[in-house]
Design a protein around this nucleic acid. Sequence first.
DNA 1: CTGAAAGCGCTAACAG
DNA 2: CTGTTAGCGCTTTCAG
Lengths: 340, 340
Amino acid sequence: MEGAREVTRAATIHAVAALAGVSPSTVSRALNSPGLVNAVTRQRVLESAEQLGYQPNRAARSLVLGRTSNLGLIVPDIANPFFTPFIKAVQAQVRQASYSLFLADTDEDVEVEVEAARAMAKQVDGMILCAPRMPGNRLRSIAVHTPVVIANRQSRTAPAVTMDIGPGVRQAVAHVHALGHRRCAFLSGPRGSWSNQQRLRFFTAACQAQGVELIVLGPFEPVFGGGYRGADEAVAAGVTAIFAYNDLVALGVMSRLNDRGIRVPGEMSVLGFDDIPMASMMNPPLTTVMMPITAVARASASMLLTLLGGNGPPRPAAQELAARLVIRSTTESAARPTGL
Amino acid sequence: MEGAREVTRAATIHAVAALAGVSPSTVSRALNSPGLVNAVTRQRVLESAEQLGYQPNRAARSLVLGRTSNLGLIVPDIANPFFTPFIKAVQAQVRQASYSLFLADTDEDVEVEVEAARAMAKQVDGMILCAPRMPGNRLRSIAVHTPVVIANRQSRTAPAVTMDIGPGVRQAVAHVHALGHRRCAFLSGPRGSWSNQQRLRFFTAACQAQGVELIVLGPFEPVFGGGYRGADEAVAAGVTAIFAYNDLVALGVMSRLNDRGIRVPGEMSVLGFDDIPMASMMNPPLTTVMMPITAVARASASMLLTLLGGNGPPRPAAQELAARLVIRSTTESAARPTGL
DNA sequence: CTGAAAGCGCTAACAG
DNA sequence: CTGTTAGCGCTTTCAG
């Protein structure tokens, strides 16, 4: 009979101690504070441990130490390409600090998010909540018990790392203005979304300040298909440049424009938002507002690590990183308005 | 002073016991085996627990129970859209069985993978290795200590869930043959890759069996850019249909074809492989061989759960799921060869 | 039905 | 430098 349970019961510290002819505490010390034990003894212990394939039991360790050496990360959607660089960066940094990472995805659902955060809180030393959708009080109820860093969302409850889209938006508007565009469309995203409101607000302000007429269209779903529809409306509105809510939408726009035989950037300039990995790979490469998501990830991770380290500033200050325009090949001098 | 450490020390089972006026063991029973305790006592305990916001310490629980209630999942690359449905499905199933899930990504690096698996093994009750790259002996050394299920790869070491691409490939070839195509290109992927070899082998066999001439091109990188280059070679080869190594490559092909003014599917038919979420969203929607990745995920998860359950068959058998063709809009009757 | 006692595997004083 | 002792918080016999 074979089956589910392990063949060999894992070796305990006692077994190692016995084999090395020392006490368990010496084994513990040899492994955790090599300096405190005689070199030759330590060598013997190490060999015994090696021979038995000894792996400290994490539960026992956590229990006595009061820490798990695990960190958690919760993101709205793993499938969203906007978050993947974030996940990767956090993962790398966390691993480097020799923590393990619990990663959960909430499918953009608040209930799932709250539940995931609660469940996770019990088994990590701290966690990063990326763009959490839950209300402030729920956030607080979690942050009270567990060190938390919030990314992509303002908070008074916990230290937060956010992005300032202002510079990027202003650069984008200045860029199209410089190319001679005077009438542009903004393809808006989900009405309820905070980032849509923010993007809309900044674009409106920047266009007004720089003398560009802004036609707000939408809302459109923040995916490929949304841009597909949006493209037609923008063309009908007689604009010469399109600010898409995000890169996915921009992708849809370009696809649709292409179907209709409208050249990008020849007849229509298109700008995205986010700078997802695909943006630079598409054809032509997309001019877009780069959100410094990787930098945010790194900052969040360091912040959490600092928070846990106990050293450093007692409570890391909030931090804000600036978005900026990345000019690639979908923007060009304004031509005569298309459509009609 | 405030700072990193928790404000309130988490309530222990003792505190709850004291408040309810019972012993810790009664609290434990009230929570875990409600049947064994007097209804009114239980009620009192539950209220005390609620009042104190009592959350059992997982480390202590794991220590005595010998199980963590955590499961692990390791995938080659979180950013690869092929794996996202897999991750989501596993996550859902695991959560439903009230386990938490550790998710790790190896960036396709064998060393990272081995390391991640080792680290994870110590703190989960079992894990799913998705398309592991590590050699069989490393795999074995892990599977010996931890219940493991392998997805997307054959194995004699552990129960595995794999996909049979045969039916899908044969359907694809039959499909283009029925449309009158007699000369097709296969844009191959990474030379070393097992799935590339497999796909190539099956396409070669199916084409030969069905009387379709197959021009093998490449290798190309398995991403958008690869297809971009591949498209030109395929056109130069004078084929009327292109089998792309995967959907990303197909995407690149279509983009390039479009740039060159070659209509899909009018002048060239294009077929993908995998059926990533984007395949149905692109324009026109891609005809592709659907890999039943979600089904594999579900099967893997159930398998692992069974393995851990101790009940059911002592060792779940390996399982193989069939791929099949999904016909969308990038395939049409053969026209005259393009190019030259 | 409930309490007392023992112990999961490990670390951290505290003596030697 | 090393062994002994005492728990970390929880579950589970074993008595009552």
